[in-house]
């Protein structure tokens, strides 16, 4: 057991499937608060599935193992309860919600975190919202636009990071936040993520490309293949994967079943 278990996001020998098809096959990972970990892997390795399962997506069934948030199991909890406990998922494909403005959406999410009968203070809320929007170069008139509706890829991702900044989670899973971004958008999003780094948050960055990790430099890099973490290393591992591809690591570690540290 990790020394960080009481202050970490811990995935323990997790097995999960969709229908009869196993997707996660004994995945173990520990993300201590204050650290940024990256998961890399080929398409189909199960990276996005892992993100959805942690968030509690109803399509997946966990067959064994556990996910612990600061030592408490969150399996069996509804997605909204997990979120209120401090888990945040930045979606690879954020949903469009017609007619619901960003301002109202985030306000509802913050309101949901308050005790019954307590009202969010509107002035403070908007001051904070505008400050975070400015920092992420999100135009202020976005507050009255429907969530993600008609947004470009970059706008959607910035909006995800805006939500993360407003909700201040203890743990955040960023699912392919770099996909669909040009270099300028990537820099803005990365700067937004870096601004949130610190001792009070643990982050798991899921990505297909090393490029993102030039901007969000991880403390650890894990390689995922066929539903498991097959190898872990420091940030240099990402560079090696970029240069040499995934075949060597799968050959070296895949079949032996070596587990991540």
């Amino acid at each position: 057991m990790s020394a960080h278990s009481s202050s970490s996001l811990s995935i323990r020998d997790l097995h999960a499937s969709i229908g009869d098809k196993p997707i996660l096959k004994g995945l173990t990972l520990d993300i201590p608060k204050g650290e940024v970990h990256a998961i890399m892997g080929k398409n189909g390795a199960g990276k996005s599935t892992l993100a959805k399962i942690m968030a509690g997506h109803p399509d997946y069934t966990v067959t064994s193992g556990d996910v612990l948030l600061d030592g408490e199991s969150i399996l069996g909890l509804e997605p909204d309860v997990r979120a209120r406990l401090g888990l945040f998922l930045a979606f690879q494909y954020p949903m469009e919600i017609p007619g619901v403005t960003i301002a109202n959406f985030i306000r509802a999410a913050l309101q949901a975190r308050l005790p019954e009968g307590e009202e969010l203070e509107a002035t403070d809320y908007y001051a904070k919202l505008y400050a975070k929007m400015d920092a992420l170069s999100v135009p202020r008139n976005f507050t009255s636009r429907s969530v993600n509706e008609g947004f470009s890829g970059g706008e959607k991702k910035r909006c995800e990071i805006l939500q993360m900044a407003m909700l201040e989670p203890s743990y955040a899973v960023l699912d392919e936040t770099d996909s669909g971004l040009d270099i300028d958008a990537l820099k803005i999003v990365s700067a937004g993520v870096n601004a949130l780094r610190g001792p009070n948050i643990g982050m798991l960055v899921i990505t297909h490309y090393q490029r993102l990790l030039d901007y969000i430099v991880p403390d650890k890099v894990h390689v995922m293949s066929e539903g498991r973490i097959i190898h872990s290393g420091d940030k240099d591992l990402a560079l090696k994967l970029e240069a040499q591809g995934y075949d060597w690591v799968e050959k070296e570690f895949g079949e032996s079943g070596t587990k991540a540290a």
Partner: peptide, 24 residues
């Protein structure tokens, strides 16, 4: 699911979606 992943309870999420439906 997207709304619940933000911490919004299902009933409230449904109300927001309804509100959006009328907003159109």
């Amino acid at each position: 699911f997207y709304m619940m992943a933000r911490g919004i309870a299902p009933k409230q999420a449904a109300q927001l979606i309804v509100r959006g439906f009328f907003g159109a």
